[in-house]
Design a protein around this nucleic acid. Structure first.
Length: 224
DNA sequence: CCAGACGTTGTT
DNA sequence: GTCTGG
DNA sequence: CCAGACGTTGTT
DNA sequence: GTCTGG
């Protein structure tokens, strides 16, 4: 009854969007506080197939003491230790917000003005754990902060627009200037309480504003 | 050939 | 481990 | 990124 | 202050 069908490039993109949606709604059990060294879902393409795997946040090269949770997008492709990952093992990291801490250790949460989820640009590799076992690990690429973010922090994660997701995941693709270009997303920032500070803490409480709002941030002291 | 890099952030 | 620079 | 440790010995 | 673990 069904002896043939097609899957054009355009249809492939739709399939990818569907996959991304699936991840964000079903596979991504809610996470409010994904921290370095923890497992989180990552989208990748292997043997031509797009898949989702839980990976450890932070590359762990043998020579590095600390896990590398961020790498600069501007230079990563030129670094001997990472160029192969940039060439062969790019990935997308689904998220709907990210945290930055002010110099005063006030946690801020950044979300898109339209509240839409998004994908961050990452690369991954198999690092060796203490048993010599291969563990897939990922790192988030960074770029100069967008204006609203720059008030708190100079750097921010690279976002991959939907129209570049397929290219980003395809190992055959080579130039990422387009994929890395600033998507000019408007970001909204709001202060959250210190519950999020502790890496083990999970749940919606991570999103709640501070119990005692920071006087300087809210301007509540003005005029006193 | 060997030596040295290979990360990011914010703070002083 | 691997690449770049000298 | 933040939180929390930052020690040694010998014994079970 | 600095390092490790999450």
């Amino acid at each position: 009854m069904c002896g043939r069908y097609s899957l054009t490039k355009k249809e492939m993109r739709l399939a990818l969007q569907e996959v991304a949606e699936m991840i964000l709604t079903l596979l991504t059990f809610e996470r409010y506080n994904i921290a370095p060294t923890q497992l989180a879902p990552v989208i990748l393409q292997e043997s031509g197939n797009i898949s989702v795997r839980q990976m450890r946040w932070g590359l762990q090269p043998s020579w590095s003491k600390a896990p590398l949770i961020n790498l600069q997008s501007e230079t990563v492709a030129d670094k001997p230790a990472f160029k192969e990952s940039v060439r062969q093992r790019r990935c997308l990291i689904p998220a709907d917000g990210f945290y930055e801490w002010t110099s005063g250790r006030q946690a801020m949460r950044f979300v898109r003005e339209d509240r839409a989820p998004f994908c961050l640009a990452g690369i991954w590799e198999n690092s060796l754990d203490y048993n010599g076992r291969a563990v897939p690990c990922y790192t988030i690429l960074t770029t100069a902060a967008a204006p609203a973010v720059a008030r708190v922090h100079k750097r921010m994660p690279v976002l991959v627009q939907e129209k570049y997701m397929e290219q980003w995941l395809n190992p055959a693709a080579e130039n990422f200037d387009e994929a890395w270009r600033d998507p000019f997303v408007e970001w909204e920032a709001y202060a959250v309480g210190d519950f999020v500070n502790k890496t083990g803490n999970e749940g919606p409480e991570c999103l709640e504003p501070p119990r005692q709002p920071d006087m300087f941030l809210t301007g509540a002291m003005a005029g006193r």
